[in-house]
């Protein structure tokens, strides 16, 4: 156990964390605006991954390019799910919303199973094996690009929410849906767009992650749980919290894999979650909603 190994694990985790952040930002946005818990989040991500995989296979598109298309496709998926289903249970009790999203998650996961089969896949990327050495530790180029893209997308989302009119309306509706209705905002449309953007975030995250980690239809639910972990740790409804939480969880898991048994790395995330829930339930960076 050398210092270089720990440093390497921390760096790998940190660069990987960009994807975690992106998926958590999507979840946080959906929850913040609609107070709906998107249990199908991880399964939307898997669909993003498979789209990237198919695009790479058929058209030879690199996932670092095709993630735009994947995000657009999952945006549409999110809009449809919101319009057809979520919109109708916005005022329903929590357990009903959870049950509905569970149904969506089951359908999406098993649709992927029927269409793509149960095999574990991984998208080929031209940068898959490239590395750059920095003294005793190396930088995985694919992870570096992923991190950069995830950061850029998160910044773009931030600018959209805080600078554009529609973004400001989304934040207004998140803050007070009734109030937004009163000032004449088209809340239904806002909800639709917000859900779509949240889904697009996780679709892009899925496409980017497909080059880093193997995936299969069954990984969806685990990703959903990880997203929840991050969002709670970072603070529900706080986009900055979700972003930093993603980095934190990724580094913690990566270190846990080195310091403990690799298969126990998820445990680190859950223990972190329990501690946060008990001692700082508003999350590390939680405060007001977006």
């Amino acid at each position: 156990m050398t210092l270089a190994l720990i440093g390497q694990a921390a760096l790998n985790g940190f660069l990987f964390g960009g994807v975690y952040s992106l998926m958590a930002v999507g979840l946080s946005l959906i929850f913040g605006v609609m107070r709906v818990i998107n249990i199908a989040h991880g399964d939307m991500m898997v669909w993003g991954s498979y789209l990237a995989f198919v695009l790479a296979l058929r058209l030879g598109l690199d996932p670092f390019v095709s993630f735009v298309l994947c995000a657009a496709a999952i945006f549409c998926m999110g809009v449809v799910v919101q319009r057809a289903l979520v919109n109708r249970v916005l005022n329903a009790p929590h357990e009903m919303q959870i049950l509905l999203m569970l149904g969506v998650a089951l359908v999406l996961e098993n649709l992927a199973l029927v269409v793509f089969g149960p095999d574990t896949r991984r998208t080929e990327s031209a940068y898959g094996l490239a590395t750059v050495w920095l003294g005793p530790i190396f930088v995985d180029v694919a992870r570096l690009i992923t991190f950069g893209l995830a950061l850029a997308l998160s910044c773009a989302l931030y600018l959209f929410l805080f600078r554009s009119d529609l973004g400001k309306l989304i934040r207004a509706a998140a803050d007070n849906g009734y109030g937004a209705l009163v000032i004449g905002a088209d809340v239904e449309r806002i909800y639709m767009v917000a859900f779509g953007i949240g889904a697009a975030c996780v679709g892009a995250a899925g496409a980017l992650m497909s080059a880093l980690l193997p995936f299969s239809p069954a990984t969806g639910f685990a990703q959903t749980v990880t997203s929840f972990n991050i969002v709670i740790i970072g603070g529900m409804g706080s986009l900055l919290g979700a972003f930093l939480g993603g980095l934190l969880v990724a580094v913690a898991e990566s270190l846990g894999a080195v310091l403990l048994v690799p298969s126990l790395k998820e445990l680190v995330g859950f223990v972190l979650l329990v501690l946060i829930l008990l001692f700082r339930p508003q999350g590390l960076f939680g405060g007001k909603t977006t």
Partner: peptide, 22 residues
């Protein structure tokens, strides 16, 4: 030979229950 289909049915039923028999 379609291993996932039964869960799709299951999921759709769930959605229907929530929407129509909340």
């Amino acid at each position: 030979g379609l291993s996932g289909v039964h869960l799709i049915v299951y999921g759709s039923l769930l959605i229907a229950v929530v929407l129509f028999f909340p």
